[in-house]
Amino acid sequence: MIEFFAWVGRRSLAFFERLGRGTLFLVQVCARLGFLLTRPSLTLAQVWAVGVQSLVIIGVSGAFVGMVLGLQGYNTLVTFGTEESLGVVVAKSLCRELGPVLTALLFAGRAGSALTAEIGLMKATEQIPALEMMGVDPLRRLIVPRYVAGLISMPLLAMIFTAIGVLGGYFCGVGLLGVDEGAFWSQMQLHMALGTDIGNGVVVKSIVFGAVVTWIALFEGFDAIPTSEGVSQATTRTVVNSSLAVLSLDFVLTGLMFD
């Protein structure tokens, strides 16, 4: 029994220690954001690595998720004779939840893990100590451009995912299942609000998720034990922790945004 409490205590202490270190890391990164104004080209390269490279997986997933929504939504709605509302079902679920959340999960798997592995390996191969010894601040030179690239890329990817998803639902519902095209769009437009559904749903959520996933990925990489085993563990932790963070934050954000 005593051992159990000791174990719980140790685990919570370890958790708070990591959270504290992570927060400190984030503060240090934010304090250096101004550096980017002098070297914008560094971010460009990272937007390419983080955003452009994730485009294909985001686009394909968005199309399929939209099509599945169209299919499932149609099957449910047709029993009540309200298949004209298919547009609302597709657009609402994509904009409020599936768009930002699935994009963030895919982003964590595709870009987050790559960021952790890259930074962790740079540490393992002495590239980060080498930067320090050359008088170059690795936080500024390596972390800040990647963090900002994550902040920029994630909302853009979520918007692309959502838009392609709506088109996927349209293709499936109108094109394959024969829902009336006019009803599909007009019902959607009747029930979708720019501020709540698009602004809060897609934009705000994806910015928050982007900030959190990129933070976790970079911190895990920078904090990784500089061995191949340490880097692989850090990469796993990035995917697990950022997925958990995204899902739990989504609950909180949904509670705050949509009453």
């Binding site: 937007v47 390419w48 452009v52 853009l156 437009q189 979708m192 897609v202």
Partner: peptide
């Protein structure tokens, strides 16, 4: 790389525009 990043950013903004106009009927 420059071109593809430019393309990516405009694609994202186009998606937002589509969501605003076509989905929410701004």
């Amino acid at each position: 790389m420059e071109i593809s990043v430019g393309f990516f950013v405009s694609l994202g903004l186009a998606a937002l525009l589509m969501l605003a106009l076509k989905v929410a009927n701004l």
